[in-house]
Amino acid sequence: MRLSIYRYNPDVDAKPYMQDYDIALEPTDRMLLDALIRLKEHDDSFAFRRSCREGVCGSDAMNINGKNGLACITKIADVREPVVIRPLPGLPVIRDLIVDMSQFFKQYHSVKPYVVNDDPPPEKERLQSPEDREELNGLYECILCACCSTACPSFWWNPDKFVGPAGLLQAYRFLADTRDQATGERLDNLEDPYRLFRCHSIMNCVDVCPKGLNPTRAIGKIKEMLVKRTV
């Protein structure tokens, strides 16, 4: 299998370069991540993140043939060779495919991604009706792989100010949660030309989400809540 991979080791390389590889696969190698692990057997200087290898942990997000995705759930049979693999765009590269996700998580933390409820906790747990729980489907499944936010031009230009699709999806996940009591504070936190309104609904996030989620719809719902609160 032919691969063209972004290489950069700041301790050694003056600048990043693309390195071509031709690797022999085993019959058991089905996913792109298998090919990368096979490649690392030949060239152990090659660095990338991976953990669960089944699309749950979100560690191996990368730019595959120009589109962000998870290597572990991208089938080798589906990608055109040579497969051009680069780190997620817009984030500082630590080494090869490993990027510094601090900015991404900072935005995620800024939306307070937890239920805020001042009532004394009940004996067992805070219950929801099945209908209320239904509201959280399509929101809670996010694995924070950063495919969406790093595919978003608004996040590229203002990663320090724009929350980004992943953060906003989580913001709505808690706005939509009937157990949460901080709706007003959450909306106040988001009503800002940079934090929320950098989103112009171009839907790159929806295009790349490996879990098939729709951050654009969630952002639309946040805007709808703001409109209802204002008019």
């Binding site: 320090d160 106040d188 800002d192 030309p193 940079y194 934090r195 309104f197 703001l226 409109v227």
Partner: peptide, 15 residues
């Protein structure tokens, strides 16, 4: 320090 929280944007978006 990056400062955000201008509390506008909705009216422009709606407009």
């Amino acid at each position: 320090r990056e400062v955000v929280g201008a509390h506008y944007g909705l009216r422009d978006w709606l407009a």
